[in-house]
Amino acid sequence: MEKLIVSPSPHQRGSVTTQKIMLFVIIALLPAIVAATVIFGIRALLLVLVCTASSVLFEFLCRKLMKRDNTISDLSAAVTGILLALNLPVNLPFWMAVLGSFVAIVIVKQLFGGIGQNFANPAIVGRIVLMLSFTPYMSSWLKPFWYKTADLTTSPTPLAAEWVVSYSSSSDFVGKITPPVSYMDLFLGKTGGCIGETCALALLIGGLFLVVTKVISPSTPIAFVGTVAVLTFIFKGDVLYQVLSGGLLLGAIFMATDYVTTPITTKGKIVFGIGCGIITFLIRNFGGFPEGVSFAILLMNLLTPYIDKLTKTRPFGFVKNKEVKQNG
């Protein structure tokens, strides 16, 4: 008879694996990818493919070079690639996108030890590096459905667009202010912007899927979006417009919920979300950039270890300030 297996308990494990979680994130991103393709054309899909393929390839080569177990099958590199692509404008040259993948996977993720070890969100840093390096390319936005009309003129994003003030008569001091993009267009994504950020509907469907499947906890997105909404309300801005524009929903649902680079407890996640919301609001309203979601998440990524330290759970039956007796 073969020898019996002896191992410590527990002898059964749950069915959730890292790979399954990443697969669920990819599934949740599909609506956004579809929306991006519909709104910005087949080049948007190609951009997603280029980023994903290059991210996976960089991950593969990196692990090979470092003589470590290959981790491409955990799908985390694919998730990073998709997220990076969704944060890019549709007409960005592919080589720049590949460079973004390189920064994300090689520099931010693998040089710090690979999955679970990076302190900043790879896709976000990839995007920020591209934005600072190739600012003109990264801030030129083709209009939605440009591919139908072959219209290559660019349009500002909803956040950078001028608000139209119309006066009914020349003596009026208070004009009627209309948003440059209608709420419905913002909700459906019919506006300029990064390919994955414009369609709020697709992002919300994905987010709902992740919450229902318990991949993410809703605390971070709610705290993040809620903070932006509350601050906008206090400063008498247009709450709905702020929430639906720019990268807020993409960031709040898919980037600020990254396990590795955000706090681990629910309390911590809420602090993180509020922090992101405040920074986003400040950059959008008082900063030099029209959009601040990426910077907000990156800055909060850096604070995550400190948030973690201050938001530990309280053990059941915990007694404060006591000399803990040791066994033995």
Partner: peptide, 28 residues
Amino acid sequence: SDTLYKSTPCIRCGKCIKACPMNLMPTE
């Protein structure tokens, strides 16, 4: 049979913390 699992790096999902009946932080 006993599925012998291969451990992969912690991804800080926090599921262990939510599972712990004693409210401990197993990953920490």
